[in-house]
């Protein structure tokens, strides 16, 4: 009997090991462990065993059954794993097919540049202040030391509504309003839309500016340079440098044009900067004391500096947009590229 049991065990384990699929495993199970199975029939032959040997023999049979059962289970696990892998392989998708999605839109490049610049300025401690787009002559010109019929008015072609009301040609108008309203120290930026009667391939009658104004007791041209350097690094990258060139604006004295090292070639010279390595991007200067006085700020005590730039142009440089007309055409084939 014992011999037969060992034989069944050995053979069963061998068969299990050799089984190729789940069906053959089931067959083995039935053949060995089933009601008519080999092991069951051995158990049935128990009555032929001497009573004193029965417990021992019973234990042997159970041991054999456990071994076979666990062997079957183990083998089943193997088959399950294989099946799962097959299933996974079958359900693979073409990962290169386009994603199905509610298609995202995009902000206008000018807005994106506005957001970037405003965030940088706010982090540097500037307050955002806005003002009307339709302005009086005073806030747009006279309060900025640009009297009527003065040659410096020639610098800007202005849209007029009446003799005294116009479309602001610069967001500096907001600075005059702010200086009247706020007491120093003042540190504001005025983002917004401005208008000039000039329309060709490189001029849009509507464009956007961001101007900044700082008024405090001890500020100087050196502070302006340091601040603009830091700001432009934040906009165009750490390697950015700026340089000042003398210029003229009626509301600043001294006045400078600010050249920013070309973000495309980093000053080496390329097509974007026409080989100069720099782009003329900002105007700036120390606030003319006459402008402070006109707005009721004591120019003996306080000094200020101001800067301003065209945001559309910044955006174009930043995004490599070459045709200004695209900025106001609203063609989704253009806008989609900024997604």
């Amino acid at each position: 009997m014992e011999e037969k049991l060992n034989q069944i065990l050995t053979e069963s384990l061998k068969e299990i090991a050799n089984a190729n699929d789940k069906t053959s495993l089931t067959e083995i199970k039935v053949k060995v462990l089933g009601k008519q199975g080999e092991l069951t029939s051995i158990l049935r032959g128990m009555r032929d065993v001497a009573p004193e040997d029965r417990p021992k023999f019973g234990a042997l049979v159970n041991e054999a059954r456990e071994k076979i059962e666990s062997a079957i289970l183990e083998k089943e696990e193997v088959f399950n794993k294989i099946e799962l892998e097959k299933e996974l392989a079958k359900s693979a998708v073409d990962i290169t097919e386009p994603g199905i999605n509610h298609e995202k839109g995009a902000l206008h490049p000018t807005t994106r540049m506005f957001n970037k610049l405003i965030d940088i300025c706010v982090a540097m401690g500037f307050k955002v202040v806005e003002g009307p787009e339709i302005e009086t002559d005073y806030y747009n010109f006279e309060g900025l030391n640009i009297p009527k019929n003065h040659p410096s008015r020639d610098m800007q072609d202005t849209f007029f509504i009446t003799e005294n009301i116009l479309l602001r040609s610069q967001t500096s108008s907001v600075q005059v309003r702010a200086m009247e309203k706020l007491a120093p120290p003042i540190k504001i930026i005025s983002p917004g839309r401005v208008y000039r009667n000039d329309s060709d391939g490189t001029h849009s009658p509507v464009f956007h500016q961001l101007e900044g104004l700082v008024i405090d007791e001890n500020v100087s041209m050196a502070d302006l340079k340091a601040m603009l350097t830091s700001m432009m690094k934040k906009v165009f990258g750490e390697e950015t440098t700026i340089r000042f060139r003398p210029s003229f604006f009626p509301f600043t004295e001294p006045s400078v044009e600010v050249d920013v090292s070309c973000p495309t070639c980093h000053g080496k010279g390329c097509k974007v900067c026409k080989g100069t390595g720099f782009l003329e991007l900002l105007g700036a200067g120390v606030v003319n004391p006459k402008v402070l006085e006109m707005s009721g700020i004591d120019s003996k005590k306080y000094r200020g500096f101001a800067f301003g730039f065209g945001v559309d142009r910044f955006a174009m440089v930043y995004d490599g947009i070459t045709d200004l007309r695209n900025m106001f055409k609203n063609d989704v084939r253009f806008l989609k590229q900024m997604k």
């Binding site: 500037f126 955002v128 120290p185």
Partner: peptide, 15 residues
């Protein structure tokens, strides 16, 4: 000149 830094210490405001 060493820049006077008082003017830098302001709170920004997005509005």
């Amino acid at each position: 000149k060493e820049a006077y830094s008082g003017w830098k210490l302001t709170e920004g405001d997005l509005g």
